[in-house]
């Protein structure tokens, strides 16, 4: 999929300090019936965000105008559960480009990178610092720099590095995806396939 290139994002952030936020919360199954990729942002965190009569729940952070930005900061084990890429689409469609947590579920992490969202894993201590900074000042900016692989709390200058393999990093910076790569090696795949016993 074509997505925006990712280099550096400096933005305010939305705090969601819960642990084990699963993909059924990010996008409930009943909203997976579309045959297109766009439009899932409206139902991001649907059941936490809206009452059953579709009125917004005032106490949910996405309904709180104090917090906004391109970065979502979440508690550990974010994105557990299903393989639905719709969860990543919903986050992207809503306007987030980066999720920061101390721990991500595997499939969610892979799905995010594949569609141009950067999942950034920081230490539990640094995650706490980010939460503290946001709660102290909702306008606090966070810089996520993919080139230097660092996250920085802009006001205090506190910073931490994060890991990403160089293949995925190049993809994000250039806005490429894996399918471009695989299309270019079809002959090699064809030769491999001929040797398979099944």
């Amino acid at each position: 999929m074509a997505y925006d290139k990712f280099t550096v994002h400096t933005s305010t952030a939305v705090p969601l300090p819960l642990e084990n936020v699963d993909t059924d919360q990010i996008i409930p199954a009943r909203f997976l019936k579309a045959t297109k990729r766009e439009g899932f942002g409206d139902n991001l965190f649907r059941d936490w965000r809206y009452n059953s009569d579709n009125t917004p729940k005032a106490d949910f952070v996405l309904n709180n105008p104090t917090y906004s930005g391109k970065i979502l900061v979440a508690g550990r084990n974010f994105g557990s559960g299903s393989s639905r890429e719709h969860a990543a689409w919903a986050i992207y469609d809503y306007g987030f480009r980066c999720v920061i947590s101390s721990f991500f579920a595997d499939i969610f992490k892979g799905n995010s990178i594949n569609i141009g969202i950067l999942p950034v894993t920081v230490s539990p201590e640094f995650l706490e610092k980010i939460f503290t900074a946001i709660y102290a000042d909702p306008k606090a900016e966070i810089e996520v720099n993919l080139l230097s692989q660092t996250v920085t709390i802009v006001a205090s200058g506190e910073s931490e590095g994060f890991e990403i393999n160089s293949y995925k990093k190049d993809n994000l910076i250039n806005g490429y995806d894996d399918i471009d790569y695989l299309q270019a090696m079809k002959e090699e795949i064809g030769a491999f396939e001929k040797e398979r016993i099944f």
């Binding site: 393989s83 595997d106 594949n114 393999n165 894996d178 399918i179 790569y181 299309q183 795949i189």
Partner: peptide, 22 residues
């Protein structure tokens, strides 16, 4: 194992996905 839709597209178009070994 389970995969996301981008990977479904990869498998359809090239019978491969990109996977770091766990």
């Amino acid at each position: 194992f389970g995969i996301g839709t981008s990977e479904v597209e990869m498998v359809l178009s090239s019978q491969c996905i990109m996977q770091p070994k766990p």
